[in-house]
C-alpha cells in the first residue's frame, strides 16, 4: 500500500506528458496549444492522407525491420557464444560489441555522417547500418544473459543422447533462449524506430523516418498532426509492452 502511495507521483510524472499529447492531437486549434479546444479527428485524417507521413512510416518500418534482422543475424550468435562458452578475449569482445550503448549518439552520428559520405552510404542503407551499430548490443546482451541462465549440463546431456552441435543449438539452446531473443529483438526494433539523432544526420529530405519527420514538423509547422502521430506511437508502444508482458507471464 505504502509502495502504491510512493509510486503514484512517479507514475504521474511519467504519464503526464503523454496525457497532454493525446488531447492536443484531438484539438480543433490549428496550432499545438494547451489547453486544447474542441474535439476532432481532423489531424488523424491529415496524417493518413499525407504522403510525407506515410512515406516516413514506411521508411521507419523498413529500417527498423532490416536493422532487427541484421541484429539477430550478427548479435544472436555473438550473444550465445558469450553466454555459453569461455574463451580468450571474451570480455574485450563484449566491451566492443556493447560500446555503442555508452557512446553518445551525437558523437556516433557525426562520425558516421563523415565516414558514410565517403562511402556513398546514406538514406536506407546508411541509416540501417548506423542503427545496426546502436541496436546490436541489445540482442547481444539479452541472448547472452538468456544463454547464461541455461544449465550447461543440458547441452552435455543432449550430446550424450546423440545430438550433434547443430542439433543441440536447434533443439536445446534456441528454445531455452527464445524469450530472451524475442525481448532483444523488440528492444532493437523500438530503438531503431525511435532513433532521431543519427537519423537526422543520415537521412535526406527525400528519405525521412517518423522521428525525423516529427522533428521537422515541430520546428517548421507546429500543427497537431505531430501530436496525433505521437498518440498513435504511444498506443502502439503500450500494446507492444502489454503483449510482451503476456508472453513473459505465459512463459513462466
Amino acid at each position: 500500500m505504502l509502495l502504491v502511495i510512493v509510486m503514484c507521483p512517479n507514475i504521474l510524472i511519467l504519464l503526464a506528458p503523454i496525457l497532454v499529447v493525446i488531447p492536443m492531437g484531438l484539438s480543433t486549434d490549428s496550432m499545438l496549444s494547451w489547453p486544447p479546444r474542441g474535439m476532432t479527428f481532423h489531424w488523424y485524417g491529415q496524417l493518413f492522407n499525407s504522403p510525407q507521413w506515410m512515406d516516413a512510416a514506411q521508411n521507419s518500418a523498413a529500417v527498423a525491420a532490416v536493422t532487427t534482422i541484421m541484429c539477430l543475424i550478427f548479435g544472436l550468435p555473438a550473444g550465445l557464444a558469450l553466454g555459453i562458452q569461455n574463451w580468450r578475449g571474451q570480455s574485450l569482445f563484449l566491451g566492443l560489441s556493447t560500446a555503442p550503448l555508452i557512446f553518445p549518439h551525437i558523437v556516433l552520428a557525426i562520425g558516421m555522417y563523415q565516414a558514410y559520405v565517403q562511402l556513398g552510404l546514406n538514406d536506407f542503407w546508411g541509416l540501417t547500418a548506423g542503427h545496426f551499430v546502436t541496436c546490436v548490443p541489445f540482442v547481444v546482451i539479452t541472448a547472452m544473459s538468456g544463454a547464461k541462465q541455461m544449465s550447461p549440463v543440458l547441452m552435455l546431456a543432449a550430446r550424450g543422447l546423440g545430438a550433434g552441435p547443430l542439433q543441440v543449438l536447434w533443439y536445446v539452446i534456441l528454445p531455452s533462449v527464445r524469450p530472451a531473443i524475442l525481448f532483444g529483438a523488440v528492444l532493437a526494433f523500438m530503438t531503431s524506430w525511435d532513433e532521431v539523432v543519427i537519423a537526422n544526420y543520415l537521412t535526406t529530405p527525400t528519405f525521412r523516418t517518423i522521428p525525423v519527420q516529427m522533428w521537422a514538423e515541430l520546428t517548421e509547422l507546429f500543427d497537431p498532426t505531430v501530436a496525433a502521430m505521437a498518440s498513435i506511437l504511444f498506443a502502439a508502444a503500450t500494446a507492444l509492452t502489454a503483449a510482451m508482458m503476456l508472453v513473459r507471464s505465459k512463459a513462466k
Binding site: S151, R159, L161
Partner: peptide
Amino acid sequence: LAPESRNIGIVFQNYSLFPN
C-alpha cells in the same frame, strides 16, 4: 570419438531433462 557418436546413455545428478 564425439560424444554423440558413442551410443552411451548418461544419467546426471540433477536430472537434466529438457525443460521445454
